[in-house]
Computed example of a mutant assay.
Amino acid sequence: MECQRWASKGINIKYEIRDNRNGYKAGALKEGMKRGYVKECDYVAIFDADFQPEPDYLWRTIPFLMHNPEVALVQARWKFVNSDECLMTRMQEMSLDYHFTVEQEVGSSTHAFFGFNGTAGVWRINALNEAGGWKDRTTVEDMDLAVRASLKGWKFVFVGNLSVKNELPSTFKAYRYQQHRWSCGPANLFRKMVMEILRNKKVTAWKKLHVIYAFFFVRKIVAHIVTFAFYCVVIPATVLVPEVQVPKWGAVYIPSIITLLNAVSTPKSLHLLVFWILFENVMSLHRTKATIIGLLEAGRVNEWVVTEKLGDAMKHKSGKQMKKSRSRIGERLHVLELLAGVYLFFCASYDLAFGKNHFYIYLYLQAAAFFVMGFGYIGTFIPTS
C-alpha cells in the first residue's frame, strides 16, 4: 500500500515478490537483479525486512561510490531497537557492537578485506556482476559475494557513524537458528573457496593470507572450536587429571584482556561481563557443532530458517497465553547443552571435594548456564498457538 501511494504521485517505485523460496535469500536477490529496470541503475541498496534506514541513508552512502570507482560496497552499522528487551538481546548487542566497532571499522580503515553484513549496504552493480552475482551454494551469500568481489580487486567502505535500526532475535529458538547459519555457512564457504583464493592471481599473497588465515580460519573456525574445547572441555578435565596444569596467563589473563576488549564497545553493559562470558561459552558448543557440519558438508549444511523477529507481536499476548507457553518445557529441551552441564557439574563437584585450584567456582557457574540454556529458559517466551 505504501508503494502504491508513492507510485500514485509519479515516483518510480515497485513492490515485487516471488512465488517460491528457491535459493532462499540469494535466490531472491538473484531474481530481483533480473528485472529490466535494473539495467537503468548503477547501484543497489539491500535491507532485510526489519531494517529501518533513515531518510538520508542514500545521501550518506552513494557519494563514496560516485567519487571512487574502485569502491564496490558501502556498509552501514546496525543499531538495535530491542537490545534492552531481555538479557539475551543485551548479550547479542555486546558481541555485534564489537564486530562493527572493531572488526568492520579496522578492516575499512586499513583498506583490508571485511565481509558484507547482508543488509544495510549499497553495492555497485558492475562490481556485483563482475564478481559473478549472487550464489546460493552456501547460507552466507553475502560473505560469498564479498570474498569474490575482493578477489577481483574491489574495495569496501564501512561508515561507522551511519546506523540503521533493526531488531535482534529475542527468542532462544530464533537465535540458535541464526547462529547455526552464521557459523555453518562461513565454514562451508571456506571449504569451497580456499583453493579458489590460493589460485587467484589478481591479489597479493598478503591479502590471500589475510582472507584465508585471519578472516576465515581464525575468526570463523578456530574461534568457535577453541572457545568450547578450552573452557568447556580442557579446563574441566584438568580437575580430573591434576598432573595437567593450565598456566594462569592462558586460563585467566589473556582471556580477561580479550573479554574486556570485546565489551569496551558497549560500555553500558560492562556490569554484564560475567553473564556474557558464560553465555558465549554455551553458544560456542552450538557454533562448534555448526562449524563442523559446514566443514564436513554434513546434513544441515544448507538449512535456512528465517530468523524470527517479534516486532510488536508481544504487545498483544495475554498473560494466560504466556503461562501456557512456559508450561511446555519439553519443546525447549536441548540435549547437548544439558549433557555438557552434567559434565561440568560433575567436574565442579570433584574439584570442590578434592581439588586445590578453586576451579569449581567457574565450573558451577558455567554448568548453571548450560542448564539454563539447555532447558530453554533464556530469551523472550512467546505462545506456541
Score class of each variant (00 low, 15 high):
268 K>P: 00
197 I>Q: 12
282 V>L: 05
165 K>A: 10
90 R>Q: 11
234 V>L: 11
176 R>S: 00
367 A>N: 09
87 L>F: 09
163 S>L: 05
10 G>C: 04
30 K>Y: 14
340 A>W: 05
250 G>W: 08
219 R>T: 06
223 A>L: 07
66 M>N: 08
233 V>Y: 00
330 G>E: 06
74 V>G: 06
109 S>I: 00
260 L>C: 14
377 Y>Q: 08
112 A>F: 01
1 M>G: 08
340 A>I: 14
307 T>H: 06
224 H>W: 04
342 V>Y: 11
119 T>C: 04
22 N>D: 14
321 Q>V: 06
47 F>W: 06
116 F>S: 13
76 A>M: 00
348 A>V: 13
133 G>I: 04
271 H>V: 07
6 W>K: 09
45 A>L: 05
64 F>G: 05
150 S>R: 15
45 A>F: 07
73 L>N: 08
308 E>L: 11
169 P>Y: 00
378 I>R: 06
307 T>D: 08
131 A>E: 07
116 F>G: 04
137 R>Q: 14
29 L>P: 04
133 G>E: 05
165 K>C: 01
253 Y>C: 00
113 F>N: 01
280 E>Y: 08
295 L>T: 04
253 Y>Q: 05
381 F>N: 10
380 T>F: 03
371 F>P: 01
48 D>I: 10
111 H>C: 07
332 R>I: 03
268 K>H: 04
110 T>S: 09
323 K>F: 01
127 A>F: 02
131 A>L: 03
312 D>A: 13
244 V>H: 02
5 R>S: 11
177 Y>F: 12
177 Y>G: 15
109 S>V: 03
308 E>W: 02
299 G>D: 01
43 Y>D: 03
306 V>H: 08
353 A>L: 15
118 G>I: 02
159 V>R: 02
125 I>Y: 05
95 S>Q: 14
184 C>R: 10
253 Y>A: 07
333 L>F: 06
81 V>G: 14
315 K>I: 03
355 G>R: 09
130 E>F: 00
5 R>T: 14
52 Q>L: 13
233 V>W: 01
164 V>A: 00
349 S>N: 13
179 Q>T: 03
57 Y>R: 04
343 Y>W: 12
382 I>W: 07
325 S>Q: 14
233 V>D: 00
138 T>R: 15
169 P>Q: 06
189 L>C: 14
226 V>Y: 09
74 V>E: 06
211 V>A: 12
229 A>K: 01
309 K>W: 01
53 P>T: 03
288 T>C: 14
120 A>S: 14
280 E>M: 07
382 I>L: 13
353 A>R: 15
372 V>S: 02
237 A>Y: 11
215 F>H: 12
166 N>D: 00
371 F>K: 10
3 C>S: 12
189 L>G: 11
225 I>M: 07
19 D>L: 07
274 V>I: 11
237 A>W: 09
77 R>L: 02
314 M>F: 04
335 V>M: 11
83 S>T: 09
134 W>P: 02
104 Q>W: 08
